[in-house]
Design a protein around this nucleic acid. Sequence first.
RNA 1: UCCCGAAUAGCUCAGUUGGUUAGAGCAUCUGACUGUUAAUCAGAGGGUCACUGGUUCAAGUCCAGUUUCGGGAGCCA
Length: 478
Amino acid sequence: MFNKRVKIKELLSTEPQGQEVTVMGWVRTFRNNQFIALNDGSTNNNLQVVATLGMLNDETQKRITTGASLKVTGNVVASLGKGQKLDLNATSIEILGDCDAAEYPMQQKKHSLEFLREKAHLRFRTNTFGSIFRVRHSLAFAVHKFFNEKDFLYLHTPVITASDAEGAGEMFRVTTLPFDNPPRNEDGTINFKEDFFGKSTNLTVSGQLEGELAATALSDIYTFGPTFRAENSNTTRHLAEFWMIEPEMAFYDIEDNMNLAEEFIKYIIRHAMDNNREDLEFLAQRLAEEEKQLPQDKRSDLGLIEKLEFVLNNAFERITYTEAVNILLESPAYKKKKFQYEVSWGVDLQSEHERYLVEKHFKKPVIVTGYPAAIKAFYMRMNDDGKTVAAMDILAPGIGEIVGGSQREERLDKLVQRMEQMHIPVEEMSWYLDTRRYGTVPHAGFGLGFERMVLFVTGMTNIRDVIPFARTPKTCEF
RNA sequence: UCCCGAAUAGCUCAGUUGGUUAGAGCAUCUGACUGUUAAUCAGAGGGUCACUGGUUCAAGUCCAGUUUCGGGAGCCA
């Protein structure tokens, strides 16, 4: 009967009145043959279990090692020590699972994030990753809460797709054909008619196009699921498998879209601030300690909590691409030739430019709109100037692009024209173009990379540290 | 994929101009102590110096290649 146990988070918030409880968890430390710091993952705070001297035989005492799992029953009393409010005076200690201390890789010391990345299971036992994954959960929960409150439908778009026209990136092929001897056409190419789906298929790079189909019937939908990119990207901001949130709304223009995105980001941050204060404070402290190693000019101006509060309390800066280019051209950095890449109208903003706008010029999140059509996707709505599209990117300090969205081109003729210009196979996309044939409406949507959001909120700097099992080039161990 | 850097004990790292038996802290093990807070004190064990090849009387140290990791860039979310 395990359900009668009390979680440590709950227990630590109660008043010590000698009440009997049962707890279960893993040993963090065992001090002085008397004091067991027990953790069950519900909070970073450990419960101090007190085993009075003599209550344990020698053999049991030796088996209480860092990492071992215990079931402890005892009485909750006010602690005589200074480090904690209450103790659990044990009346029985049962070892559920032994942990050989000589082999256990986790020690009572600080471990590097690189080392922990190799210990898929045990990194969950650390305070840092405990906090990160509790915050991650909280943000995910807030995503659903926000959209549910706004009457959006959670739409499940497919993981396997045949669409190869989105241009969002390199795709992972899905096939059941044999590698050594696949069926071939007369011209030597592989005959995908014999493949499982009778055509070439891939893992999805975005649920947007499917989302548009639903939104132009159900009004407001959002997706939240895994997305795959086979790009050979080796950076602290990219994963081969990541989670993306993609709302799509009928009867929305670009302005409505920006308002929703800003409100959404603030809502989920607020939710984490309200529900994960302890974890965020722990992560703030971790970040502050890490930044002590850095030279003065590389450190953040604000602590993690202050940064999040600042984002909540200030409107995102909204500028057009044209204004952004002008700001860059007039910046001291440009005049001193500090930029490595060219700045001119028509060229996409580089990381260094985005960083300058966000971190140096405005010092807050920035929404850039009205990008040149030539550097954006086919489905974005052409503005009246005939040169720019109704696109918007939200740039966040330290991370860069966190949201990419647009008002969609709802005019069939203009959309087809654009697709032809960009060599997108119009016939294959007929199912998509139906949305513009039968009662088309202005609509808009955006995509938000969930891990980038978790990075921003936790103050972590490597995206591999905010997903439980990172998938990156050359790494798929667990 | 490109640029830069790294790889030495379980972990974090030191190792000088190439030169005898490769070191420290933490962890582990043994013992002591017992209201501790990453407990403390004493002692012990622990190494294919990433891999392959080369230079040299002699390579952890120099050179080349490979692999992996880290940082940055591109692509993007």
